[in-house]
C-alpha cells in the first residue's frame, strides 16, 4: 500500500470514467453506468449493486448481466456467501480464489456452486458510511486472482459513488458537484449524528440534509460540519438549518 494524498484525484478520475461511459459530462451518475464502468475498468466479468430489503435480504438493483444477479440470488437461497458476510461485518470480503480449500470450507454450499457456474473470484464491497447501510457492490470474474492495491482503491471509490447514488435516490436528488465526501473527517460523522438527533431522522437522511444545506449555501461540507459540531448551526425539523 502506498500512501499518497490522492483521494480526490482518484475520485475525479473514477467519476470521469463513469461519465464517459454514460455518454457525456454533467450527466448524473447512474447505477447502470457505474456497474458497467466498474466491470470494465477493474477487469471483471460483471458487476452488480444490491440493496438491503427491509427484511435484511440482498436484492439486486442493477447487474451488468445474468451472472452477477444469479450470484446474489444464490447467496440468498443458500443463506451464506461473501455478500452476506460483507453485510454482516460492514467490511469488504475479497475472494481471489473461490476454489481454494479455505473458501470451500468457509462457504460449503455457495463456493462449489459458484465455481461450477464458472466464477473464480468475487469481491463484495459493502456500501457503508458508519451505520448507513446501502447494500453491496459485487464484482466477479472467471479468472482467479486478487485486486491490486490501485484496483482496490478504485473499487472502494466506485463503492462510495454507488452509495451516494442510492442515498440521493432515497432522499431526493442532491447533486453536490464532483467533490468527494470528506469521509476521513470525524466531524462530518459527528455532525451527521447531531443532525439525526435534531431532526429525529435516520443517519442517511441526516447526511443528505447536511449535503443539501452545504450545496444550497455553497459551503464546503467540512466547514459546515465543523459549525454543526460547534453548535453554530442547528437543523430544525420545521424549517431548514439556522
Amino acid at each position: 500500500m502506498t500512501l499518497s494524498p490522492d483521494g480526490a484525484d482518484r475520485y475525479a478520475r473514477v467519476r470521469a470514467w463513469i461519465e464517459a461511459q454514460s455518454g457525456g459530462a454533467d450527466s448524473a451518475v447512474s447505477l447502470a453506468a457505474l456497474c458497467e464502468t466498474a466491470s470494465l475498468r477493474l477487469g471483471m466479468g460483471g458487476a452488480a449493486v444490491t440493496v438491503e430489503t427491509s427484511r435484511g435480504w440482498a436484492e439486486t438493483r442493477y447487474s451488468t448481466g445474468d451472472m452477477a444477479r444469479r450470484l446474489v440470488e444464490l447467496q440468498v437461497t443458500v443463506g451464506e456467501g461473501p455478500c452476506l458476510d460483507a453485510t454482516r461485518t460492514g467490511g469488504p470480503v475479497l475472494v481471489s480464489d473461490l476454489g481454494s480449500l479455505s473458501c470451500q470450507r468457509r462457504w460449503p454450499l455457495f463456493a462449489p456452486l459458484a465455481t461450477e457456474a464458472g466464477v473464480s473470484a468475487l469481491f463484495a464491497l459493502p456500501l457503508r458510511v458508519g451505520s448507513i447501510r446501502g447494500g453491496t457492490l459485487v464484482l466477479h470474474r472467471a479468472v482467479a486472482g486478487a485486486l491490486s492495491g490501485g484496483q482496490l482503491a478504485d473499487a472502494l471509490t466506485f463503492t462510495e459513488l454507488a452509495l451516494r447514488f442510492l442515498l440521493d435516490g432515497h432522499a431526493g436528488a442532491v447533486e453536490d458537484g464532483a467533490d468527494c465526501l470528506p469521509l476521513h473527517d470525524p466531524q462530518l460523522h459527528q455532525a451527521t449524528g447531531m443532525i439525526a438527533a435534531q431532526l429525529d431522522t435516520g443517519i442517511d437522511e441526516a447526511l443528505s440534509r447536511l449535503r443539501a444545506h452545504a450545496f444550497a449555501t455553497r459551503r464546503p461540507l467540512a466547514d459546515l460540519a465543523a459549525d454543526v459540531v460547534a453548535r453554530r448551526v442547528t437543523f430544525d425539523p420545521s424549517e431548514e438549518a439556522t
Binding site: 461485518t89 460492514g90 467490511g91 469488504p92 470480503v93 475479497l94 459493502p126 457503508r128 458510511v129 458508519g130 451505520s131 472502494l156 469521509l183 470525524p186 466531524q187 460523522h189 459527528q190 455532525a191 451527521t192 449524528g193 447531531m194 443532525i195 439525526a196 438527533a197 435534531q198 443517519i203 459540531v229
Partner: peptide, 22 residues
C-alpha cells in the same frame, strides 16, 4: 477486510457521539 471494518466502526462511533452529544 479488517482495516475497513475497523475504519467503518470508527465512523459509526463518531455518528453515535454526535447523536448523544445533542
Amino acid at each position: 477486510e479488517q482495516l475497513q471494518i475497523a475504519l467503518n466502526s470508527r465512523v459509526v462511533i463518531e455518528q453515535a457521539k454526535g447523536f448523544l452529544a445533542h
